[in-house]
């Protein structure tokens, strides 16, 4: 139960307003969920891979476990930082991502791995997160965000959105809705060796899509199939290293509005979020039709 937002800058590789734009959009629909907020930002500034972990009360021990696991996996630590509820590292690593990710998850709660992606999520509002993580000053090419009202699972940083496609670099998802064939879909993926960290249906969508991308399908084709394969009510945004996309269920029970011009495309649960980018200006917006999908990439 939540609000979602995403923005893709068509021209610039790095737009200095990325963080600011997402904070504004999520603040606009914060009423849809006050429990937690999260951002998936694509920055294109990392040297190697960035990994972000949630650290619990015993942060020292967690950090030590992360470092030991990195060494064991042959990942060279380049940078490290404690920030809010998380511990961030940048590493040089050439191996396969999936076994690396699963191994690191045994050391600590892994939020994301990416060569451009960084997922920042925590309990609190968009402005709360900005104060702790300095979201507004983050520049980048595109990103998605989420405000959450927890219904079935607990309020804690790792249960916040966005969800990373566990085991796949640079894929993230924000989702508003409920996937009713969750367990059926999950068992199919588990039978093929995928691991899930949560019972959250958004994680499932992310892994489902990333799996298709890894098999060489386009994001567009993956989204087209998702509209048929996923059962329930949903409006979601997916982001990859190169772009973003959306899919919307046939029942259209969950809202989605978009605005597009020569410079950017912005998508959100409500128009009020889009209008935050252009205060005082009536926008020519459109609502994606039920059962449709679309992508933007560079």
């Amino acid at each position: 139960m939540c609000g979602i937002a995403g923005i893709f800058f068509k021209k610039a590789e790095t737009n200095p307003t990325l963080g600011q734009a997402l904070v504004d959009m999520l603040d606009g629909c914060q009423h849809r969920g006050l429990d937690s907020t999260g951002f998936a930002l694509y920055e294109n500034t990392f040297k190697g891979l960035r990994l972000r972990f949630i650290v619990d009360d015993d942060a020292g021990a967690t950090v030590a476990r992360v470092k030991a696991a990195l060494a064991e996996q042959g990942a060279k630590l380049v940078n490290e930082k404690r920030e809010g509820a998380s511990f961030v590292v940048e590493v040089e690593y050439d191996g396969e991502i999936r076994p690396f990710a699963y191994a690191m998850e045994h050391a600590a709660k892994l939020v994301s791995i990416g060569s451009a992606l960084d997922i920042i999520k925590d309990v609190g509002t968009a402005h709360d997160l900005d104060r702790i993580y300095g979201i507004k000053s983050i520049a980048g090419s595109h990103g998605v965000g989420h405000v959450r009202l927890a219904t079935e699972s607990e309020v804690k940083p790792e249960a916040a959105h966005p969800f990373w496609a566990t085991g796949f670099s640079d894929v993230a998802i924000v989702h508003n809705g409920q996937i009713t064939n969750y367990w059926k879909m999950r068992r199919r993926l588990e039978a093929r060796g995928f691991e899930f960290r949560t019972d959250n249906d958004s994680e499932l969508i992310a892994v489902y899509l990333a799996d298709k991308l890894a098999q060489g399908e386009t994001l567009e084709l993956a989204l087209e199939q998702s509209v048929d394969d996923l059962d329930g009510v949903f409006s979601f945004l997916v982001s990859t290293k190169d772009g973003i996309g959306f899919a919307k269920d046939r029942l259209a029970a969950k809202p989605m509005v978009m605005f597009e011009n020569d410079d950017l495309v912005a998508i959100a649960s409500e128009e009020v979020s889009l209008n935050r980018l252009f205060p005082g200006r009536p926008l020519s917006t459109t609502e994606p039709a039920p059962g449709t999908f679309r992508t933007w990439s560079r």
Binding site: E270, E271, V272, N275, R276, P279, G280, P282, L283, T285
Partner: peptide, 28 residues
């Protein structure tokens, strides 16, 4: 009403024969 910027609940519960002009978009 100026600068409505798609905010919700504009004019709800109004019980009077007046004209309300909203210069922009309104929300829910």
């Amino acid at each position: 009403i100026v600068n409505p910027d798609a905010r919700h609940h504009l004019g709800v519960g109004l019980v009077a024969p007046v004209t309300v002009k909203i210069r922009g978009s309104a929300g829910y």
